[in-house]
Design a protein around this nucleic acid. Structure first.
Lengths: 232, 232
DNA sequence: GCTACAGCTTGACATATATCAATTGTCATA
DNA sequence: TATGACAATTGATATATGTCAAGCTGTAGC
């Protein structure tokens, strides 16, 4: 691993307050890798050998059952994924693939567990990260179980608008068929849902979405801080 | 808090390896309470004042949105709930109510965080518990997103059978309408789903279920360790 | 034993969502 | 520019699931 990479990683909140010897131990067996789009990083069921830290690009977490596939989450920088599997030394529950050109740090899971056992600051950081992931997943479950497909899309668009700093226009971060899977519907239904939202001020051109006045959409979507606010 | 209660709590894996002073500090402001059935313990959105540890009985976690309600999980002894909210000092994302007579230990959240910062063994135990909860939730999400209502019921019944030690007969741990909500369907549909499973060897009498030969049901349900095995 | 109530079930019907098939659009590449 | 591959869209239709209303069933209280 290059010194510049190590310097960059050291800045992460996950390693904040960690002692230098522990950090060295953690990064000795680590490596940084850059992947092109559409590369399978992880396959569910495999043993968890590395904790992944996403630096640049984006990664899709998805799951299979009985020949079906569903997108579970989109991971964005800077964030870890499959932390829980690393901690428990258990097999992956989800698969992962890159969506675009992506730079990832791989830390050997056994080192993560060993340093975790010795470095208190790291343990605290891991718990904070894991609790954050857990709460994000609870919100996602509430979204799926309490809302219709149209309501999920409406709220998703409002969240994306928020993410773009409240700008009227933004670009969808993944293909529509993946978005459909993430929102728990088919691509065909997503297409129709977008059309249904046109009278609510949602304009769409390819992956480009414009919501000039979100008022009507908010009335329809009824966003809640307990589902849609990433800070909560 | 009575000495016998303190003794009992001390046995929990969550407090295993923790120093006595830290344990004392954690339990000084704690109390044990017994609740009758149908008592609201927690309301989503409220600040998180206590970490709850369920000792006896059972607790339903549920969520609201726009006048709708959905059962998110059933908590059984011995297990914590709303650990993530405690760690992050964030509002509850789910509500909780007792389903039967229930004994719960309440630990002040601020004490949990303080001791967590000082006691490494406790930090490790918290992470293990949180990672477990996270993985349970991932499995639940996969169940909801990848399976039809009938498949969810079939797999649920097989999991309950497993929980009963593989016994042919067992009792549903909650009312059918709650089970329906947990499985993401209406009570009417659950009723029909049970009927559909009759040819697969599922007999039902009230809350009592008998699956003499699970072979056909397994063929239909296609259970997966990555969704249905609580140990994974 | 009755009664009242709540939960469960059933049937008829409505709606949401999925599926299938065909078409259009888009982009990379020859 | 033409071509092929693939995503997105559209319309027609099928299926899953929800809603409503009625009846059933068990049980707690009298």
């Amino acid at each position: 691993m290059r010194d510049s990479d190590i310097m960059e990683i050291r800045q992460l909140s996950l390693f904040d307050g960690m002692s230098d010897p522990h950090f060295d131990r953690l990064t000795r067996g680590a490596y940084v890798q850059t992947f092109p789009p559409q590369v399978d990083l992880i396959h569910e069921g495999d043993p968890c050998d590395f904790l992944h830290i996403l630096f640049e690009g984006s990664v899709e977490l998805f799951a299979h059952w009985n020949g079906r596939e569903s997108t579970m989450a989109l991971v964005r920088p800077v964030s870890t994924f499959i932390l829980a599997a690393t901690i428990r030394d258990a097999p992956y529950l989800m698969s992962a693939r890159t969506l675009e050109k992506t730079r990832i740090v791989l830390l050997p899971s056994s080192d993560v567990r060993a340093v975790f056992d010795e470095d208190h600051a790291f343990a605290r950081a891991v718990v904070a990260e894991l609790a954050q992931c857990y709460r994000a997943l609870v919100k996602s479950s509430k979204d799926i179980k309490l809302r219709s497909a149209l309501e999920r899309l409406a709220n998703y668009l409002l969240r994306q608008r928020q993410r773009a700093g409240g700008a009227a226009a933004f670009t969808l971060p993944m293909e529509k068929r993946r978005l459909a899977s993430y929102l728990g519907m088919t691509a065909e239904n997503l297409s129709r849902a977008f059309k249904t939202l046109q009278p609510y001020g949602v304009e769409m051109d390819g992956a480009h979405v414009t919501i000039s006045d979100p008022g009507d959409l908010i009335t329809l979507a009824k966003p809640s801080v307990l589902i849609d606010d990433p800070a909560q």
